[in-house]
Design a protein around this nucleic acid. Sequence first.
DNA 1: AATTTACAGATTGTTCAACAATCCTTCGAT
DNA 2: ATCGAAGGATTGTTGAACAATCTGTAAATT
Lengths: 242, 242
Amino acid sequence: MASSEPIISSPRFSANHAATRTAAGRLRVAVPSVAERVADELRLQLAEGALLPGTRLTESTIAEDLGVSRNTVREAFVELASERLVVRHPNRGVFVASLEAGDIHDVYTVRRAIEVSALRAGGSPEDVAAVRAAVEEGKRAAAAGDDEALGTANQHFHGAIVAMAGSPRLNSIMGQVLAEMRLFFHKATVDAQFYQHYLPDNEAICLALEAGELDRAADLLLAYLDRSEDNLSEVHGEAGTD
Amino acid sequence: MASSEPIISSPRFSANHAATRTAAGRLRVAVPSVAERVADELRLQLAEGALLPGTRLTESTIAEDLGVSRNTVREAFVELASERLVVRHPNRGVFVASLEAGDIHDVYTVRRAIEVSALRAGGSPEDVAAVRAAVEEGKRAAAAGDDEALGTANQHFHGAIVAMAGSPRLNSIMGQVLAEMRLFFHKATVDAQFYQHYLPDNEAICLALEAGELDRAADLLLAYLDRSEDNLSEVHGEAGTD
DNA sequence: AATTTACAGATTGTTCAACAATCCTTCGAT
DNA sequence: ATCGAAGGATTGTTGAACAATCTGTAAATT
Protein backbone atom coordinates (compact mmCIF):
# COMPACT_ATOMS: atom_id res chain seq x y z
CA MET A 1 0.00 0.00 0.00
CA ALA A 2 0.92 3.64 -0.29
CA SER A 3 3.21 3.11 -3.24
CA SER A 4 4.27 6.39 -4.74
CA GLU A 5 3.26 5.59 -8.28
CA PRO A 6 1.62 8.67 -9.70
CA ILE A 7 -1.23 6.68 -11.11
CA ILE A 8 -4.54 5.47 -9.81
CA SER A 9 -5.20 1.75 -9.78
CA SER A 10 -7.37 0.32 -12.52
CA PRO A 11 -11.07 1.03 -12.08
CA ARG A 12 -12.18 -2.58 -11.91
CA PHE A 13 -15.72 -1.63 -11.14
CA SER A 14 -16.84 1.88 -10.60
CA ALA A 15 -19.88 3.85 -9.64
CA ASN A 16 -21.82 5.97 -12.07
CA HIS A 17 -19.97 7.14 -15.13
CA ALA A 18 -22.94 7.68 -17.33
CA ALA A 19 -22.71 9.14 -20.79
CA THR A 20 -23.72 12.76 -21.05
CA ARG A 21 -24.50 14.63 -24.21
CA THR A 22 -22.97 17.82 -25.43
CA ALA A 23 -24.98 20.91 -26.29
CA ALA A 24 -25.14 20.09 -29.97
CA GLY A 25 -26.52 16.69 -29.01
CA ARG A 26 -23.41 14.69 -29.73
CA LEU A 27 -23.05 11.78 -27.40
CA ARG A 28 -19.90 11.83 -25.36
CA VAL A 29 -18.29 9.04 -23.40
CA ALA A 30 -17.98 10.45 -19.93
CA VAL A 31 -14.37 10.09 -18.95
CA PRO A 32 -14.42 10.30 -15.17
CA SER A 33 -12.69 13.30 -13.74
CA VAL A 34 -9.63 12.83 -11.58
CA ALA A 35 -11.69 13.65 -8.51
CA GLU A 36 -14.17 10.93 -9.38
CA ARG A 37 -11.41 8.44 -9.99
CA VAL A 38 -9.98 9.24 -6.59
CA ALA A 39 -13.40 8.70 -5.06
CA ASP A 40 -13.72 5.42 -6.97
CA GLU A 41 -10.34 4.24 -5.78
CA LEU A 42 -11.17 5.04 -2.19
CA ARG A 43 -14.57 3.38 -2.51
CA LEU A 44 -12.82 0.31 -3.82
CA GLN A 45 -10.36 0.19 -0.98
CA LEU A 46 -13.18 0.69 1.49
CA ALA A 47 -15.18 -2.13 -0.08
CA GLU A 48 -12.18 -4.45 -0.04
CA GLY A 49 -11.44 -3.75 3.56
CA ALA A 50 -8.08 -2.18 2.79
CA LEU A 51 -9.23 0.81 4.81
CA LEU A 52 -10.89 -0.23 8.03
CA PRO A 53 -13.45 1.85 9.93
CA GLY A 54 -11.87 4.47 12.11
CA THR A 55 -8.81 4.79 9.91
CA ARG A 56 -7.72 8.33 9.40
CA LEU A 57 -7.38 9.54 5.84
CA THR A 58 -4.79 12.27 5.62
CA GLU A 59 -5.23 14.57 2.65
CA SER A 60 -1.58 15.00 1.81
CA THR A 61 -0.80 11.29 2.12
CA ILE A 62 -3.59 10.24 -0.20
CA ALA A 63 -2.75 13.04 -2.59
CA GLU A 64 0.84 11.81 -2.84
CA ASP A 65 -0.05 8.13 -3.02
CA LEU A 66 -2.48 8.73 -5.85
CA GLY A 67 -0.41 11.38 -7.54
CA VAL A 68 -3.05 14.08 -7.41
CA SER A 69 -3.40 17.40 -5.70
CA ARG A 70 -4.84 17.98 -2.27
CA ASN A 71 -7.76 19.94 -3.67
CA THR A 72 -8.76 17.00 -5.79
CA VAL A 73 -8.64 14.64 -2.82
CA ARG A 74 -10.79 17.14 -1.00
CA GLU A 75 -13.48 16.97 -3.65
CA ALA A 76 -13.48 13.20 -3.39
CA PHE A 77 -13.87 13.46 0.37
CA VAL A 78 -16.93 15.65 0.04
CA GLU A 79 -18.52 13.03 -2.16
CA LEU A 80 -17.62 10.11 0.09
CA ALA A 81 -18.86 11.99 3.11
CA SER A 82 -22.21 12.52 1.42
CA GLU A 83 -22.37 8.75 1.03
CA ARG A 84 -21.56 8.32 4.71
CA LEU A 85 -18.53 6.21 3.87
CA VAL A 86 -16.27 8.67 5.63
CA VAL A 87 -16.88 11.16 8.38
CA ARG A 88 -15.40 14.63 8.33
CA HIS A 89 -14.35 16.15 11.63
CA PRO A 90 -13.75 19.85 11.11
CA ASN A 91 -10.11 20.77 11.42
CA ARG A 92 -9.29 17.23 12.49
CA GLY A 93 -9.57 15.21 9.33
CA VAL A 94 -11.68 12.57 7.70
CA PHE A 95 -12.02 9.05 9.04
CA VAL A 96 -13.43 5.88 7.60
CA ALA A 97 -16.99 5.66 8.86
CA SER A 98 -17.71 3.22 11.62
CA LEU A 99 -21.21 1.88 12.19
CA GLU A 100 -22.34 2.11 15.81
CA ALA A 101 -25.25 0.19 17.26
CA GLY A 102 -27.69 2.96 16.37
CA ASP A 103 -26.40 3.10 12.83
CA ILE A 104 -27.04 -0.58 12.31
CA HIS A 105 -30.65 -0.18 13.30
CA ASP A 106 -30.90 2.89 11.12
CA VAL A 107 -29.48 1.15 8.09
CA TYR A 108 -31.95 -1.67 8.52
CA THR A 109 -34.76 0.81 8.84
CA VAL A 110 -33.85 2.12 5.42
CA ARG A 111 -33.56 -1.38 4.04
CA ARG A 112 -36.95 -2.37 5.40
CA ALA A 113 -38.48 0.68 3.78
CA ILE A 114 -37.09 0.35 0.30
CA GLU A 115 -36.70 -3.42 -0.06
CA VAL A 116 -40.16 -4.25 1.21
CA SER A 117 -41.67 -1.51 -0.91
CA ALA A 118 -39.93 -2.75 -4.03
CA LEU A 119 -40.87 -6.34 -3.36
CA ARG A 120 -44.51 -5.52 -2.73
CA ALA A 121 -44.73 -3.77 -6.08
CA GLY A 122 -43.29 -6.77 -7.89
CA GLY A 123 -41.47 -6.57 -11.19
CA SER A 124 -41.20 -7.77 -14.74
CA PRO A 125 -40.29 -11.40 -15.50
CA GLU A 126 -36.75 -10.25 -16.26
CA ASP A 127 -36.52 -8.51 -12.90
CA VAL A 128 -37.75 -11.63 -11.13
CA ALA A 129 -35.28 -13.71 -13.09
CA ALA A 130 -32.50 -11.50 -11.82
CA VAL A 131 -33.59 -12.18 -8.26
CA ARG A 132 -33.67 -15.89 -8.98
CA ALA A 133 -30.20 -15.69 -10.50
CA ALA A 134 -28.87 -14.13 -7.33
CA VAL A 135 -30.38 -16.93 -5.26
CA GLU A 136 -28.71 -19.57 -7.43
CA GLU A 137 -25.46 -17.61 -7.27
CA GLY A 138 -25.65 -17.86 -3.51
CA LYS A 139 -26.28 -21.60 -3.61
CA ARG A 140 -23.26 -22.14 -5.81
CA ALA A 141 -21.08 -20.04 -3.53
CA ALA A 142 -22.29 -21.98 -0.50
CA ALA A 143 -21.63 -25.28 -2.23
CA ALA A 144 -18.13 -24.10 -3.08
CA GLY A 145 -17.60 -22.89 0.45
CA ASP A 146 -16.69 -19.44 -0.78
CA ASP A 147 -17.79 -17.09 1.98
CA GLU A 148 -16.72 -13.99 0.13
CA ALA A 149 -18.82 -14.96 -2.88
CA LEU A 150 -21.68 -15.87 -0.59
CA GLY A 151 -21.74 -12.40 0.85
CA THR A 152 -21.58 -10.87 -2.59
CA ALA A 153 -24.43 -13.04 -3.80
CA ASN A 154 -26.53 -12.00 -0.86
CA GLN A 155 -25.98 -8.35 -1.72
CA HIS A 156 -26.89 -9.13 -5.31
CA PHE A 157 -30.10 -10.73 -4.10
CA HIS A 158 -31.18 -7.68 -2.17
CA GLY A 159 -29.97 -5.36 -4.88
CA ALA A 160 -32.07 -7.28 -7.41
CA ILE A 161 -35.13 -6.91 -5.23
CA VAL A 162 -34.76 -3.14 -5.11
CA ALA A 163 -33.93 -3.03 -8.81
CA MET A 164 -37.42 -4.36 -9.52
CA ALA A 165 -38.75 -0.90 -8.73
CA GLY A 166 -36.79 0.44 -11.67
CA SER A 167 -36.00 3.54 -9.68
CA PRO A 168 -32.58 5.13 -10.14
CA ARG A 169 -32.92 6.92 -6.83
CA LEU A 170 -33.84 3.78 -4.89
CA ASN A 171 -31.02 1.91 -6.57
CA SER A 172 -28.60 4.61 -5.61
CA ILE A 173 -29.81 4.65 -2.02
CA MET A 174 -29.58 0.88 -1.85
CA GLY A 175 -26.08 1.00 -3.27
CA GLN A 176 -25.00 3.36 -0.56
CA VAL A 177 -26.60 1.32 2.15
CA LEU A 178 -24.90 -1.84 0.94
CA ALA A 179 -21.59 0.00 0.79
CA GLU A 180 -22.07 1.04 4.39
CA MET A 181 -22.78 -2.52 5.41
CA ARG A 182 -19.72 -3.82 3.61
CA LEU A 183 -17.71 -1.41 5.69
CA PHE A 184 -19.15 -2.90 8.81
CA PHE A 185 -18.56 -6.49 7.79
CA HIS A 186 -14.89 -5.88 7.33
CA LYS A 187 -14.69 -4.46 10.78
CA ALA A 188 -16.69 -7.13 12.51
CA THR A 189 -15.39 -10.19 10.65
CA VAL A 190 -18.74 -11.89 10.51
CA ASP A 191 -18.43 -15.63 10.88
CA ALA A 192 -18.76 -18.02 7.98
CA GLN A 193 -22.26 -19.27 8.76
CA PHE A 194 -23.70 -15.79 8.88
CA TYR A 195 -24.96 -15.75 5.33
CA GLN A 196 -25.50 -19.47 4.86
CA HIS A 197 -28.09 -19.42 7.57
CA TYR A 198 -30.27 -17.26 5.41
CA LEU A 199 -30.01 -19.08 2.12
CA PRO A 200 -33.34 -20.85 2.67
CA ASP A 201 -34.93 -17.48 3.39
CA ASN A 202 -33.77 -16.08 0.08
CA GLU A 203 -35.12 -19.16 -1.63
CA ALA A 204 -38.49 -18.84 0.07
CA ILE A 205 -38.77 -15.15 -0.71
CA CYS A 206 -37.87 -15.80 -4.31
CA LEU A 207 -40.42 -18.61 -4.59
CA ALA A 208 -43.17 -16.41 -3.21
CA LEU A 209 -42.17 -13.68 -5.62
CA GLU A 210 -42.18 -16.06 -8.57
CA ALA A 211 -45.62 -17.29 -7.49
CA GLY A 212 -46.88 -13.73 -7.52
CA GLU A 213 -47.62 -13.81 -3.81
CA LEU A 214 -46.14 -10.39 -3.24
CA ASP A 215 -47.56 -9.68 0.19
CA ARG A 216 -46.32 -12.98 1.52
CA ALA A 217 -42.93 -12.39 -0.03
CA ALA A 218 -42.81 -8.98 1.60
CA ASP A 219 -43.67 -10.45 4.98
CA LEU A 220 -40.92 -13.03 4.62
CA LEU A 221 -38.44 -10.36 3.69
CA LEU A 222 -39.46 -8.22 6.63
CA ALA A 223 -38.93 -11.11 9.00
CA TYR A 224 -35.60 -11.83 7.36
CA LEU A 225 -34.43 -8.27 7.83
CA ASP A 226 -35.49 -8.19 11.45
CA ARG A 227 -33.60 -11.37 12.17
CA SER A 228 -30.59 -10.20 10.22
CA GLU A 229 -30.51 -6.98 12.19
CA ASP A 230 -30.63 -8.89 15.46
CA ASN A 231 -27.75 -11.09 14.38
CA LEU A 232 -25.66 -8.16 13.30
CA SER A 233 -26.33 -6.34 16.52
CA GLU A 234 -25.06 -9.34 18.42
CA VAL A 235 -21.93 -9.47 16.33
CA HIS A 236 -21.46 -5.80 16.99
CA GLY A 237 -21.81 -6.35 20.72
CA GLU A 238 -19.02 -8.90 20.58
CA ALA A 239 -16.78 -6.96 18.24
CA GLY A 240 -17.65 -3.52 19.50
CA THR A 241 -14.52 -3.20 21.56
CA ASP A 242 -13.07 0.07 20.36
CA MET B 1 -28.93 39.95 -6.52
CA ALA B 2 -25.35 39.21 -7.30
CA SER B 3 -24.14 42.13 -5.26
CA SER B 4 -20.40 42.06 -4.80
CA GLU B 5 -20.46 42.14 -1.02
CA PRO B 6 -17.80 39.73 0.14
CA ILE B 7 -20.11 38.12 2.62
CA ILE B 8 -22.61 35.32 2.52
CA SER B 9 -26.19 36.11 3.40
CA SER B 10 -27.40 35.19 6.85
CA PRO B 11 -28.02 31.47 7.34
CA ARG B 12 -31.71 31.74 8.09
CA PHE B 13 -32.16 28.04 8.18
CA SER B 14 -29.47 25.61 7.30
CA ALA B 15 -28.90 21.93 6.89
CA ASN B 16 -26.94 19.87 9.36
CA HIS B 17 -24.44 21.71 11.47
CA ALA B 18 -24.23 19.22 14.27
CA ALA B 19 -21.88 19.58 17.16
CA THR B 20 -18.84 17.37 17.03
CA ARG B 21 -16.53 16.59 19.88
CA THR B 22 -12.80 17.05 20.00
CA ALA B 23 -10.38 14.25 20.77
CA ALA B 24 -10.21 15.09 24.45
CA GLY B 25 -13.98 14.90 24.53
CA ARG B 26 -14.63 18.60 24.78
CA LEU B 27 -17.80 19.58 23.04
CA ARG B 28 -17.32 22.02 20.24
CA VAL B 29 -19.90 24.11 18.44
CA ALA B 30 -19.44 23.20 14.83
CA VAL B 31 -18.95 26.44 12.95
CA PRO B 32 -19.86 25.60 9.38
CA SER B 33 -16.99 25.79 6.95
CA VAL B 34 -17.07 28.31 4.17
CA ALA B 35 -17.81 25.57 1.68
CA GLU B 36 -20.82 24.47 3.71
CA ARG B 37 -22.04 28.03 4.00
CA VAL B 38 -21.81 28.36 0.25
CA ALA B 39 -23.80 25.16 -0.15
CA ASP B 40 -26.35 26.45 2.36
CA GLU B 41 -26.69 29.73 0.54
CA LEU B 42 -27.21 28.00 -2.77
CA ARG B 43 -29.70 25.58 -1.22
CA LEU B 44 -31.58 28.55 0.13
CA GLN B 45 -31.71 30.29 -3.22
CA LEU B 46 -32.80 27.07 -4.86
CA ALA B 47 -35.56 26.60 -2.29
CA GLU B 48 -36.75 30.17 -2.72
CA GLY B 49 -36.84 29.88 -6.46
CA ALA B 50 -34.19 32.52 -6.97
CA LEU B 51 -32.37 29.98 -9.10
CA LEU B 52 -34.72 28.25 -11.49
CA PRO B 53 -34.15 24.79 -12.97
CA GLY B 54 -31.87 24.83 -15.96
CA THR B 55 -30.01 27.92 -14.80
CA ARG B 56 -26.32 27.70 -15.28
CA LEU B 57 -24.13 28.25 -12.25
CA THR B 58 -20.78 29.63 -13.28
CA GLU B 59 -18.00 28.95 -10.80
CA SER B 60 -16.26 32.28 -11.10
CA THR B 61 -19.46 34.29 -10.89
CA ILE B 62 -20.65 32.59 -7.74
CA ALA B 63 -17.19 32.78 -6.25
CA GLU B 64 -17.13 36.54 -6.78
CA ASP B 65 -20.68 37.14 -5.65
CA LEU B 66 -20.12 35.25 -2.44
CA GLY B 67 -16.58 36.46 -1.93
CA VAL B 68 -15.01 33.01 -1.83
CA SER B 69 -12.57 31.13 -3.98
CA ARG B 70 -13.44 28.96 -6.91
CA ASN B 71 -12.22 25.84 -5.18
CA THR B 72 -14.61 26.44 -2.33
CA VAL B 73 -17.51 26.86 -4.72
CA ARG B 74 -16.42 23.63 -6.31
CA GLU B 75 -16.70 21.76 -3.04
CA ALA B 76 -20.18 23.11 -2.56
CA PHE B 77 -21.10 21.94 -6.05
CA VAL B 78 -19.98 18.41 -5.30
CA GLU B 79 -22.25 18.35 -2.30
CA LEU B 80 -25.24 19.82 -4.10
CA ALA B 81 -24.75 17.41 -6.97
CA SER B 82 -24.86 14.49 -4.55
CA GLU B 83 -28.23 15.82 -3.42
CA ARG B 84 -29.37 16.02 -7.04
CA LEU B 85 -30.11 19.71 -6.67
CA VAL B 86 -27.65 20.51 -9.42
CA VAL B 87 -26.33 18.51 -12.33
CA ARG B 88 -22.71 18.60 -13.34
CA HIS B 89 -21.93 18.35 -17.03
CA PRO B 90 -18.22 17.61 -17.44
CA ASN B 91 -16.34 20.54 -18.92
CA ARG B 92 -19.60 22.38 -19.44
CA GLY B 93 -20.61 23.48 -16.01
CA VAL B 94 -23.24 22.85 -13.38
CA PHE B 95 -26.89 23.59 -13.88
CA VAL B 96 -29.83 23.75 -11.54
CA ALA B 97 -31.49 20.35 -11.69
CA SER B 98 -34.68 20.06 -13.64
CA LEU B 99 -37.15 17.26 -12.96
CA GLU B 100 -38.26 15.46 -16.08
CA ALA B 101 -41.32 13.22 -16.29
CA GLY B 102 -39.32 10.16 -15.32
CA ASP B 103 -37.81 11.97 -12.35
CA ILE B 104 -41.22 12.83 -11.00
CA HIS B 105 -42.25 9.20 -11.02
CA ASP B 106 -38.95 8.26 -9.48
CA VAL B 107 -39.24 10.78 -6.68
CA TYR B 108 -42.71 9.49 -5.89
CA THR B 109 -41.41 5.94 -5.88
CA VAL B 110 -39.00 6.94 -3.15
CA ARG B 111 -41.71 8.77 -1.26
CA ARG B 112 -44.05 5.77 -1.44
CA ALA B 113 -41.31 3.57 -0.07
CA ILE B 114 -40.23 5.62 2.90
CA GLU B 115 -43.42 7.42 3.82
CA VAL B 116 -45.60 4.33 3.75
CA SER B 117 -43.01 2.36 5.64
CA ALA B 118 -42.74 4.98 8.34
CA LEU B 119 -46.49 5.33 8.64
CA ARG B 120 -47.04 1.59 8.89
CA ALA B 121 -44.61 1.38 11.78
CA GLY B 122 -46.39 4.12 13.67
CA GLY B 123 -44.73 6.34 16.23
CA SER B 124 -44.78 7.71 19.74
CA PRO B 125 -47.59 10.01 20.91
CA GLU B 126 -45.24 12.97 20.43
CA ASP B 127 -44.50 11.89 16.87
CA VAL B 128 -48.21 11.59 16.13
CA ALA B 129 -48.78 14.98 17.70
CA ALA B 130 -46.24 16.46 15.31
CA VAL B 131 -48.18 15.04 12.39
CA ARG B 132 -51.39 16.49 13.79
CA ALA B 133 -49.70 19.85 14.23
CA ALA B 134 -48.74 19.89 10.57
CA VAL B 135 -52.34 19.15 9.59
CA GLU B 136 -53.60 22.06 11.65
CA GLU B 137 -50.87 24.27 10.26
CA GLY B 138 -52.18 23.48 6.81
CA LYS B 139 -55.75 24.29 7.77
CA ARG B 140 -54.72 27.67 9.12
CA ALA B 141 -52.74 28.44 5.99
CA ALA B 142 -55.70 27.47 3.83
CA ALA B 143 -58.04 29.65 5.88
CA ALA B 144 -55.62 32.55 5.51
CA GLY B 145 -55.34 31.91 1.79
CA ASP B 146 -51.56 31.70 2.07
CA ASP B 147 -50.53 29.30 -0.69
CA GLU B 148 -46.88 29.49 0.18
CA ALA B 149 -47.57 28.51 3.79
CA LEU B 150 -49.92 25.80 2.58
CA GLY B 151 -47.18 24.18 0.59
CA THR B 152 -44.79 24.42 3.51
CA ALA B 153 -47.34 22.87 5.84
CA ASN B 154 -47.84 20.01 3.45
CA GLN B 155 -44.12 19.32 3.42
CA HIS B 156 -44.14 19.46 7.20
CA PHE B 157 -46.92 16.91 7.22
CA HIS B 158 -45.01 14.42 5.13
CA GLY B 159 -41.78 15.17 6.90
CA ALA B 160 -43.47 14.46 10.23
CA ILE B 161 -44.69 11.11 8.95
CA VAL B 162 -41.19 10.06 8.01
CA ALA B 163 -39.81 11.47 11.25
CA MET B 164 -41.91 8.91 13.13
CA ALA B 165 -39.40 6.28 12.10
CA GLY B 166 -36.76 8.13 14.07
CA SER B 167 -34.23 7.35 11.40
CA PRO B 168 -31.60 9.97 10.59
CA ARG B 169 -30.98 8.36 7.23
CA LEU B 170 -34.65 8.31 6.25
CA ASN B 171 -35.02 11.88 7.42
CA SER B 172 -32.08 12.91 5.33
CA ILE B 173 -33.40 11.12 2.27
CA MET B 174 -36.82 12.68 2.76
CA GLY B 175 -35.22 16.08 3.12
CA GLN B 176 -33.46 15.70 -0.18
CA VAL B 177 -36.58 14.47 -1.91
CA LEU B 178 -38.59 17.41 -0.63
CA ALA B 179 -35.84 19.78 -1.75
CA GLU B 180 -36.04 18.29 -5.20
CA MET B 181 -39.77 18.75 -5.30
CA ARG B 182 -39.51 22.35 -4.19
CA LEU B 183 -37.25 22.91 -7.16
CA PHE B 184 -39.92 21.54 -9.43
CA PHE B 185 -42.73 23.61 -7.96
CA HIS B 186 -40.89 26.82 -8.64
CA LYS B 187 -40.49 25.81 -12.23
CA ALA B 188 -44.02 24.63 -12.79
CA THR B 189 -45.89 27.30 -10.84
CA VAL B 190 -48.43 24.90 -9.45
CA ASP B 191 -51.85 26.46 -9.16
CA ALA B 192 -53.31 27.59 -5.89
CA GLN B 193 -55.76 24.75 -5.42
CA PHE B 194 -53.09 22.13 -5.81
CA TYR B 195 -52.48 21.65 -2.11
CA GLN B 196 -55.90 22.61 -0.84
CA HIS B 197 -57.37 19.72 -2.71
CA TYR B 198 -55.50 17.35 -0.46
CA LEU B 199 -56.17 18.88 2.92
CA PRO B 200 -58.98 16.38 3.64
CA ASP B 201 -56.61 13.57 2.76
CA ASN B 202 -54.08 14.74 5.29
CA GLU B 203 -56.84 14.96 7.87
CA ALA B 204 -58.05 11.45 7.10
CA ILE B 205 -54.57 9.99 7.24
CA CYS B 206 -53.89 11.72 10.51
CA LEU B 207 -57.16 10.48 12.00
CA ALA B 208 -56.38 6.91 11.03
CA LEU B 209 -52.93 7.28 12.51
CA GLU B 210 -54.31 8.68 15.76
CA ALA B 211 -56.78 5.80 15.89
CA GLY B 212 -53.93 3.36 15.59
CA GLU B 213 -55.25 2.00 12.31
CA LEU B 214 -51.83 2.00 10.73
CA ASP B 215 -52.58 -0.22 7.75
CA ARG B 216 -55.54 1.87 6.76
CA ALA B 217 -53.53 5.05 7.21
CA ALA B 218 -50.83 3.59 5.00
CA ASP B 219 -53.37 2.70 2.31
CA LEU B 220 -54.77 6.21 2.39
CA LEU B 221 -51.30 7.68 2.09
CA LEU B 222 -50.48 5.40 -0.81
CA ALA B 223 -53.60 6.50 -2.65
CA TYR B 224 -52.77 10.10 -1.88
CA LEU B 225 -49.28 9.78 -3.30
CA ASP B 226 -50.53 8.09 -6.45
CA ARG B 227 -53.03 10.85 -7.04
CA SER B 228 -50.49 13.53 -6.25
CA GLU B 229 -48.09 12.05 -8.73
CA ASP B 230 -50.74 12.02 -11.43
CA ASN B 231 -51.56 15.65 -10.78
CA LEU B 232 -47.95 16.69 -10.88
CA SER B 233 -47.38 14.79 -14.08
CA GLU B 234 -50.23 16.69 -15.67
CA VAL B 235 -48.81 19.99 -14.52
CA HIS B 236 -45.51 18.93 -15.96
CA GLY B 237 -47.13 18.11 -19.25
CA GLU B 238 -48.54 21.64 -19.45
CA ALA B 239 -45.41 23.36 -18.23
CA GLY B 240 -42.90 21.06 -19.83
CA THR B 241 -42.18 23.42 -22.65
CA ASP B 242 -38.41 23.75 -22.49
C1' DA C 1 1.85 13.85 41.95
C1' DA C 2 -1.70 15.94 39.47
C1' DT C 3 -3.22 19.71 36.82
C1' DT C 4 -2.63 23.51 34.07
C1' DT C 5 -0.11 26.28 30.73
C1' DA C 6 2.76 27.09 26.96
C1' DC C 7 4.74 25.83 22.86
C1' DA C 8 6.01 23.46 18.67
C1' DG C 9 4.65 20.39 14.91
C1' DA C 10 1.35 18.75 11.95
C1' DT C 11 -2.94 18.99 9.38
C1' DT C 12 -6.83 21.16 7.77
C1' DG C 13 -9.33 25.21 5.60
C1' DT C 14 -9.03 28.51 2.16
C1' DT C 15 -7.16 31.45 -1.16
C1' DC C 16 -4.71 32.63 -5.29
C1' DA C 17 -2.55 32.16 -9.64
C1' DA C 18 -1.46 29.50 -13.34
C1' DC C 19 -2.14 26.34 -17.26
C1' DA C 20 -4.03 22.50 -20.03
C1' DA C 21 -8.24 20.59 -21.82
C1' DT C 22 -12.57 21.22 -23.47
C1' DC C 23 -16.50 23.47 -25.09
C1' DC C 24 -19.16 27.10 -27.61
C1' DT C 25 -19.37 30.59 -31.05
C1' DT C 26 -18.00 32.97 -34.90
C1' DC C 27 -15.93 33.44 -39.09
C1' DG C 28 -14.33 31.97 -43.28
C1' DA C 29 -13.62 28.42 -46.95
C1' DT C 30 -15.45 24.97 -49.79
C1' DA D 1 -25.62 25.46 -46.82
C1' DT D 2 -22.01 22.54 -44.80
C1' DC D 3 -17.74 21.99 -42.96
C1' DG D 4 -13.64 23.29 -40.62
C1' DA D 5 -10.53 26.37 -38.40
C1' DA D 6 -9.54 30.10 -35.05
C1' DG D 7 -10.75 32.62 -30.69
C1' DG D 8 -12.66 33.30 -26.33
C1' DA D 9 -14.60 31.52 -22.28
C1' DT D 10 -15.06 28.12 -18.68
C1' DT D 11 -13.91 24.08 -16.46
C1' DG D 12 -10.42 20.70 -14.50
C1' DT D 13 -6.38 20.38 -11.94
C1' DT D 14 -2.25 21.66 -9.96
C1' DG D 15 1.04 23.80 -6.72
C1' DA D 16 2.18 26.94 -3.33
C1' DA D 17 1.15 29.75 0.27
C1' DC D 18 -0.79 31.14 4.76
C1' DA D 19 -4.07 31.40 8.68
C1' DA D 20 -6.68 28.64 11.90
C1' DT D 21 -6.99 24.73 14.56
C1' DC D 22 -5.81 20.57 16.65
C1' DT D 23 -2.49 17.23 19.10
C1' DG D 24 1.05 16.01 21.91
C1' DT D 25 4.85 17.17 24.77
C1' DA D 26 7.36 19.64 28.00
C1' DA D 27 7.57 23.05 31.44
C1' DA D 28 5.40 25.53 35.19
C1' DT D 29 2.14 25.75 38.81
C1' DT D 30 -0.65 24.17 42.72
